[in-house]
């Protein structure tokens, strides 16, 4: 610590001095703040308004803003609606039946074990009475293929396991529910923006809670060419891609399955989506007899690229400073 002696000096201007200055018309009283009183009374005319140092720093003003990721999802939602898609919704807690069984994922599949999906502690099992007849068909399909022409998965299906409550691991359960509901006319297109959960070790590229944009297209005439067409359209409309490329992919519920990569100048190639045509083992037990294209978009990666994020955890950023300073364009 250093101590500094404080010295005050007072200077006063004499009465004569003030009088002389006033009469000289050279210098008026200067004021900094214009007040309502000065304006209304017209007295402002007697004063000179102090000139400011316009280079002086000012305090920050933080405006209210939408979250950049939420705004991005709004854009995606609007684009999908423009492309003729209807939004589906559902609850975060889901029956295993819709998350897995109806999507031809066998009950002993590793994705269903405790390291693949969050299970609910209490209550552990939900109610599936409403779906008894579908449950029978799904059971037969898993065990021996039922009448789908498939071999099935070669194991004993448990109806109790179908009732297990989990946090949904993907948005595709909503598509299964929509197909079963019969509340649709062919042709139709659906999408969902669903919060999904998986017991992942959270790191730069994995979250255990994330959003998925997924959906279906249903029409009698659909083929693999349509599937590629849908993906190409998404790449252009949603990602603003300059070029697209397709690769073989795998999902238990689709065949053929396709991975979409999109190229955008300044960003490079990104894996932007996965999709396929639902297997007969999925559609037939749901009493759907037309082809169904199922698709999902990797929007997190697209958002990260657009926002210059390198760590996926920053989507759920708890940093107010980043949110305050993040530009909106």
């Amino acid at each position: 610590m250093t101590t500094v002696d404080k010295i005050s000096r007072v200077f006063e201007i004499t009465k004569l001095g003030i009088e002389t200055l006033r009469n000289s018309n050279l210098i008026q009283d200067k004021i900094t703040q214009l007040t309502p009183n000065l304006i209304l009374s017209g007295k402002w005319k007697n004063f000179q308004l102090q000139e400011y140092n316009i280079q002086a720093p000012v305090t920050n003003v933080w405006c209210g803003k939408k979250h950049p990721y939420m705004r991005f999802l709004e854009e995606v939602r609007t684009k999908l609606v423009t492309l003729g898609f209807n939004e589906m919704t559902g609850s975060s807690v889901e029956l295993s039946f819709f998350n897995f069984d109806a999507l031809y994922t066998p009950q002993d599949h590793p994705a269903r074990e405790i390291f693949g999906i969050y299970q609910v502690k209490d209550p552990q099992f939900g109610n599936i009475n409403k779906y008894q007849s579908t449950l029978q068909k799904v059971k037969a399909t898993h065990e021996n293929g039922w009448k789908t022409g498939s071999t099935g998965w070669d194991y004993n299906y448990s109806k109790k396991e179908a009732r297990r409550l989990i946090l949904r691991g993907h948005g595709t359960c909503l598509s299964a529910r929509t197909l079963l509901s019969k509340n649709f006319e062919v042709p139709c297109k659906y999408f969902s923006i669903a919060r999904c959960y998986r017991p992942e070790v959270v790191d730069k590229t994995h979250l255990s809670e994330f959003n998925q944009v997924e959906g279906i297209v249903v029409d009698e005439k659909l083929t693999l060419r349509d599937l590629l067409g849908v993906l190409a359209r998404f790449a252009i409309e949603v990602a603003g891609a300059d070029e697209v490329r397709f690769k073989p992919d795998y999902f238990p519920f689709t065949e053929p399955s396709v991975e979409l990569s999109a190229f955008k100048k300044g960003y490079g190639w990104i894996e932007f989506g996965g999709s396929g045509i639902f297997r007969p083992e999925v559609t037939m037990p749901l009493d759907v007899d037309v082809p169904v294209i199922a698709w999902g978009l990797g929007i997190d990666r697209l958002f990260m690229m657009k926002s210059g994020l390198t760590d996926i955890r920053e989507i759920f950023s708890q940093d107010l400073d980043w949110l305050r300073r993040k530009e909106v364009i």
């Binding site: 939004e87 042709p187 659909l222 060419r225």
Partner: peptide, 19 residues
């Protein structure tokens, strides 16, 4: 070859809507 297949976009008569 997936990339030898020509994609098509069918204009299906559907109207989009948000939740």
């Amino acid at each position: 070859g997936y990339n030898n297949i020509k994609p098509i976009w069918r204009d299906l008569p559907t109207t989009g809507s948000m939740r």
